[in-house]
């Protein structure tokens, strides 16, 4: 029935895609955490113009399927970037870019929207009074954010950040549509020779199970550490 030998082989082939998956995830998070945070602050400050623009962007990303976003970005970004580079008179050949850059762009654009929402609701939870309290003890805005708001914000946002991260890892499985050499595509290409798709998907499932469980465990651990702040300032 099942070809267990192939299942085992394919498990390791799928495993070899983990670094790419993690790289895409980390880069996207690295871009979207600061940008999402800034977007969240922009939206709270109620400057109408930015609030509207960012609001439309967030609503579009949250309202459309990931795969459709990938289709759109993958077919439009190269041409857009090219005209952009021509405009700046940069002499870069955009088509020499590794396809992984498309993945960075797609998943960053997506995560920025998701994270800005997470930060926004977390900011609402800690923002106002805390900021005023910080001012009253003589901290500058920057200090207040760094010392008081961000640590608490992280505590509030951590469960959602954990969700967003696992969702992002899962979403990279759609990278096959961009020829991204991640877990799913590698395992599937290996399965094509003998049409062992069932085995391939079991292997892929196991790898994701392992990966996401580890990430969740990591977050839980970190969250415990962070809780210190919550009680520390309460």
């Amino acid at each position: 029935m099942l070809d267990y030998e192939f299942l085992l082989d394919d498990f390791f082939i799928a495993l070899s895609g983990v670094p790419i998956t993690l790289l895409v995830t980390l880069i996207s998070l690295g871009v979207s955490i600061p940008v999402g945070f800034i977007f969240a602050i922009f939206r709270l400050d109620k400057s109408r113009f930015w609030n509207k623009i960012i609001g439309v962007y967030v609503s579009f990303v949250r309202g459309t399927p990931m795969i459709v976003q990938i289709f759109i970005v993958y077919s439009s970004i190269p041409v857009l970037l090219k005209s952009f580079f021509v405009l700046l008179q940069w002499d870069t050949d955009i088509y020499k870019l590794n396809p992984i850059w498309y993945a960075f762009i797609v998943f960053s654009l997506n995560s920025i929207a998701i994270l800005s929402e997470i930060f926004r609701s977390a900011l609402i939870a800690v923002h106002r009074e805390q900021l005023e309290a910080a001012y009253s003890v003589g901290l500058s805005t920057f200090q207040a954010y760094r010392e008081i708001i961000i640590p608490q914000l992280l505590v509030v946002a951590m469960p959602n950040l954990c969700n967003a991260t696992t969702n992002l890892i899962k979403a990279t499985s759609l990278g096959y549509a961009m020829s991204l050499q991640e877990i799913t595509l590698r395992a599937k290409v290996a399965a094509n020779a003998n049409y062992n798709y069932v085995e391939a998907y079991i292997a892929i499932f196991l790898v994701y199970l392992l990966l996401c469980s580890l990430v969740e465990y990591g977050f839980k651990h970190y969250e415990k550490k962070l809780r210190f702040y919550k009680f520390g300032t309460a």
Binding site: Y95, A177, M178, S179
Partner: peptide, 20 residues
């Protein structure tokens, strides 16, 4: 040689714009 998805590759457009 690269594996990909049939729906996202528009061969004529890609060749013309120099993507491949």
């Amino acid at each position: 040689l690269q594996a990909g998805d049939s729906f996202t590759v528009d061969v004529e457009q890609w060749v013309n714009e120099g993507r491949v």
